[in-house]
Design a protein around this nucleic acid. Structure first.
Length: 121
DNA sequence: GTGATGACGTCTT
DNA sequence: CAAGACGCCATCA
């Protein structure tokens, strides 16, 4: 591996995010075994080579938003792209995480557990 | 090896 | 209700 194992794992997890779903930095951090290191995810994304074609636009912060203008070409473009993929956006411009947050089935979910429980909107 | 940084998260003013 | 400060961990200088 040309990169750190941690980075490799982060890229792997991000690459697993299906279309129409989004994952939070904290969630990914948790999946890679570093629940206290959401920043690392952002760092990894920043350092992520375009060759991997990581769906960074599917990775958002806990609010369902992301950096003001650090990637892709603007939140506007990202929002449009996510909408095209089927991600639900709220009127406030944030993603409806309750509906669109990615839930890895084969993994034990903790923080998302409550979210899933309340999913019956 | 030490210090500073960051695409976050959560608590406290 | 909104903004600011602190904390977290790995990487960069």
């Amino acid at each position: 591996m040309a990169y750190s194992e941690l980075y490799q794992k982060i890229y792997e997890v991000v690459a697993k995010i299906p279309e129409g779903r989004v994952a939070t930095y904290g969630q990914i951090a948790w999946l890679v075994g570093k629940p206290r290191a959401p920043r690392i995810i952002g760092y990894a994304m920043n350092r992520a080579p375009a060759e991997l074609e990581l769906p960074c636009h599917r990775v958002v912060n806990r609010l369902g938003e992301m950096a003001p203008l650090h990637a892709f070409g603007g939140q506007d473009f990202q929002r449009f792209m996510l909408e095209e993929e089927g991600v639900i956006f709220l009127e406030n411009g944030c993603i409806d995480l309750e509906k669109s947050q990615w839930r890895p089935e084969s993994e034990k979910i903790s923080q998302s557990e409550e979210t899933i429980r309340d999913f019956g909107i």
